[in-house]
């Protein structure tokens, strides 16, 4: 494992790949820094990810979703993103039981769609050596989205923020894992009610910006 930022340790715990370090030692003195061309540069790149999501709000609903993220990176650190997610929300088992017994349904409505716009900030760069054979390069990120969720005729202002791990593969392929905390406001019968949740996104996508086949590892 090799990372540029200490906070990365938390994110790296999510990846279970065994860590291997280079056993070979070349003639570079131990006190000499090294350089490497970034694998999967982002500056000026357009990205597109198909994402899957689940939204956990403790609201007696189960929500699964799928959608599309479209992004653009201004530089290696900062990018913007648009998100459109279709949500399939159904009452959970507990909600079903209450409805059958008491004829009551939750005050919150099932959400159908989520659209947001946001920013992604890469605060580091890291790489992991897996099985002594593969190297996975990744960007640890902080994300912030703001937008609207639609629940029937209700419109819910929504904010998502969290940490992300953007992994780079060959041919511009990217896999990302966003761990977002959500905050929403819903106008229910008793008035505006805030609600908070957790929404992990898993995305598979592609970055386009002048593809490099297999980028050189050196300057």
């Amino acid at each position: 494992m090799k990372s540029f930022a200490p906070l990365l340790t938390l994110c790296l715990g999510l990846l279970a790949a065994p860590l291997g370090l280079a056993a070979e030692r070349e003639d570079t003195p131990p006190n000499r820094p090294t350089v490497q061309k970034r694998f999967g540069t982002k500056e000026g790149h357009v990205t597109m990810h198909l994402v899957g999501v689940t939204h956990v709000r403790n609201d007696l609903y189960n929500t699964l979703g799928a959608g599309l993220d479209l992004g653009y990176y201004f530089n290696e650190q900062l990018g913007a993103e648009l998100r459109l997610v279709w949500l399939y929300t159904r009452l959970s088992g507990a909600g079903d039981s209450i409805r059958e017994r008491a004829g009551l349904t939750p005050d919150a409505r099932a959400q159908n769609y989520l659209t947001t716009a946001g920013l992604r900030y890469s605060f580091g760069y890291g790489k992991i050596l897996a099985f002594d054979t593969f190297v996975v390069h990744f960007d640890p990120q902080i994300t912030l989205h703001a937008g609207t969720a639609f629940a029937g005729q209700r419109v819910l202002p929504t904010v998502l923020t969290g940490l992300s791990l953007l992994n780079h593969f060959k041919w511009g392929i990217q896999v990302k894992l966003d761990l977002n905390l959500t905050a929403q406001m819903e106008r229910r019968d008793r008035g505006w009610v805030p609600s908070f949740g957790f929404a992990p996104f898993l995305g598979l996508g592609w970055s386009y910006g002048g593809l490099a086949a297999v980028p050189e590892a050196g300057p």
């Binding site: 090799k2 370090l21 280079a22 070979e24 030692r25 570079t28 000499r32 350089v35 050196g218």
Partner: peptide, 9 residues
């Protein structure tokens, strides 16, 4: 440790 995919700075 030294990584072979890196070069001296």
């Amino acid at each position: 440790e030294s990584w072979v995919d890196e070069l001296p700075a």
